[in-house]
């Protein structure tokens, strides 16, 4: 059930983002890019294992109980999603996808900031945010 809701959410976000970057207004394009990157972040998170329910943080208190399946990787026993061998039960959610999402969020923060400033500068130079009027480069 949860997976279905997540899938529908991701699909809708991709749809909205694609719709927005096809608009004529520059700011809407920027918003569309942002929504697309959020949809991608959700997609990355959803590609991790959902089997476990524990937070993948190993601190001193539960270091003893946190050994186990994380670093078992045996090709001959078959392939199952992240670094968990076949048949083993994962009690932690996949930490790697969270790291990936964090990286993607940081990068999308930088690009969004750059993009918004760029929109502002283009508005200063051209006096409009309508993309159909900004087409001097052709030939």
């Amino acid at each position: 059930m949860n997976h279905m809701i997540l899938a529908i959410t991701i699909a809708m976000l991709f749809g909205i983002g694609t719709f927005m970057i096809l608009r004529k207004d520059m700011i809407r394009v920027a918003i569309g890019i942002t929504i697309l990157s959020h949809a991608t972040n959700l997609l990355i998170v959803s590609s991790g294992a959902f089997l476990g329910d524990k937070v993948p943080i190993i601190t001193d208190q539960n270091a003893g109980s946190s050994s186990g399946f994380i670093f078992t990787d045996d090709l001959s026993q078959g392939i199952l999603a992240p670094i968990v061998s076949n048949g083993a039960q994962a009690i932690y959610v996949d930490p790697l996808v969270q790291a990936l999402t964090l990286t993607a969020i940081v990068i999308s923060l930088a690009t969004t900031a750059f993009l918004l400033i760029l929109c502002y500068r283009v508005y200063q130079e051209h006096g409009t945010t309508d993309l159909s009027e900004i087409r001097r480069l052709k030939g």
């Binding site: 943080i57 190993i58 601190t59 964090l102 940081v106 923060l109």
Partner: peptide
Amino acid sequence: HDNPGGGFIGGV
């Protein structure tokens, strides 16, 4: 380094 948090969140 071993708890929720980090340089990025703190910096923001």
